[in-house]
Amino acid sequence: MDIVVCGAQKPFVRGGAEQHQENLVAALETAGHRVDLVRLPVAWEKGRLFDSPLAWRMVPVDADLVIATNFPSYFVQHPNKVVWLLHQHRGAYDGFEAGASWSDFAWDDVSLEEQRLLTEWDVAALSEARTVFSNSGVVSRRLARFNGLDSTPLAHPPPLHEVLHPGEFGDYVLSVQRQEENKRPHLLVEAMAHVPSPVRAVMAGRGELLDQVRRHVEDAGLAGKVELPGFVPDADLVELYAGALAVVYVPEDEDYGYTTLQAFYAGKPVICAADSGAVLDWVEDGVTGLVCDGTPEGLAAAIRRLADDPALAQRLGAAGRERIADLSWADVVARLTAP
């Protein structure tokens, strides 16, 4: 089949969504399809919010199948449209509801009319799809609650899944993420003040908060205990996963989160928070990881528990590895392209 994968992109920003789209293209090509990736820029602020959806509406896409991945690419019109939804415009939905700082929607009539119209547009565009998949239970639940639409969660292997491997359980917890507000990097820094040596934290990844978090570490006198290497090459990252005691991933209401799955491929337990969203699709407290209350003290207690009981860490990590044993891109491709 000739398949066009559609995705939105914020210029100069590269994250999980872009990786996801490229991995999907690769998986479809491996399955023998001819595939192209079409991206259009997106703006998130209210004043320009509807421009990109309208542009997608007018883009002529000649293909046997289109697979739209994120807001607003699912506004593309095609008689054979499948949506694999990574996220909607969260600032108009859950971010708005939670009063998140990254949402510019306020409790006034202008914002509510914009939000209402976006809801109507989303329902119209998503209802055209032959099938709507989501990438997690959290995204499906949001779609059901905000738009009244059903969807089927469809999980996929994370990047590096083919090279990640278990290793020794070392003396550090690993965090792999962009250092941004919704990932709550300060939480781990504050928690480490309550974790005795020799346990360390390695926080891999860049992001707009990186310098601020580095200053936080310095100011808290945790320089020898918390490392912030910034960007880490893939090969080094694989070894960091392999040697960790556990992986800490405490985002706020995450859509999917590759870190959790990468940790499981490396046989490591994941410590998350009770409000970490889709991470909780995978992390079951005491089974594949530990779910803390989202406070620095609670997170520190979870880290200490695993540091004091490496056998527990191994058991949870092994269960996590078993949990992702059936994930495959071949299955994803088969379901997305099924007639």
């Binding site: 939905y93 509801e97 409790w107 509510l112 939000q115 209402r116 809801t119 109507e120 329902v123 609650r145 905000f146 738009n147 009244g148």
Partner: peptide, 9 residues
């Protein structure tokens, strides 16, 4: 159309 989340707002 005003779906429940918007009407709650």
């Amino acid at each position: 159309p005003v779906l429940p989340f918007t009407r709650a707002g």
